[in-house]
């Protein structure tokens, strides 16, 4: 039997924007420190320059931290009482380099139920696209939140 979900379907196709986010060397450095990242391409300006970049590279998941700055509306899902971060996907489209300025644009990607041994959960997936100062898409991030009965 198909489960009929109640939520605000008018949110499909609506983009929610935020930014610009300045990708400074300090931001990358602090991110590196918090996860113990030591690769010279992420930490050393001279190494990154020697490889042809204008500054150090941002580790590929740095953009995932910026997503929370996008104000997303309540989808008014009429299901469940618990909500938790169930999954996340990052797709790197182009290098992100210190000095870049990124814009974020998020939209509701899908809402779907899934039934397993522990019962039914409903997943809400938001997708955020990051674009740099040249209009180049550099990354897509999907965040999935589960609501449980």
């Amino acid at each position: 039997m198909t489960m009929e979900l109640e939520y605000n379907r008018d949110l499909y196709g609506v983009e929610h924007e935020a930014g610009p986010f300045e990708i400074t060397p300090e931001l990358i450095q602090t991110f590196n420190r918090s996860i113990g990242e030591t690769n010279a391409m992420f930490t050393d300006h001279a190494t990154a320059q020697a490889a042809g970049y204008s500054g150090v590279l941002a580790p590929p998941t740095l953009v995932t931290m910026l997503v929370r700055n996008v104000e997303l509306p309540d989808i008014e899902l009429n299901f469940g009482v618990m909500r938790f971060h169930a999954g996340q996907r990052v797709q790197s489209r182009a290098p992100i380099v210190a000095g870049d300025s990124l814009m974020a644009s998020s939209h509701l990607k899908e809402v779907y139920p899934k039934t397993g041994r522990s019962g039914t959960m409903v997943f809400t997936v938001w997708e955020t696209t990051f674009t740099n100062q040249d209009g180049l898409v550099v990354a897509d991030v999907q965040e999935s939140y589960a609501s449980r009965e």
């Binding site: 690769n39 391409m41 590279l57 580790p59 590929p60 169930a86 999954g87 999907q142």
Partner: peptide
């Protein structure tokens, strides 16, 4: 660390 700093194209995780 294993593959190189520019190598990771897609990472899709379930917590």
């Amino acid at each position: 660390d294993w593959a190189g700093p520019e190598s990771l194209k897609d990472l899709d995780l379930v917590f």
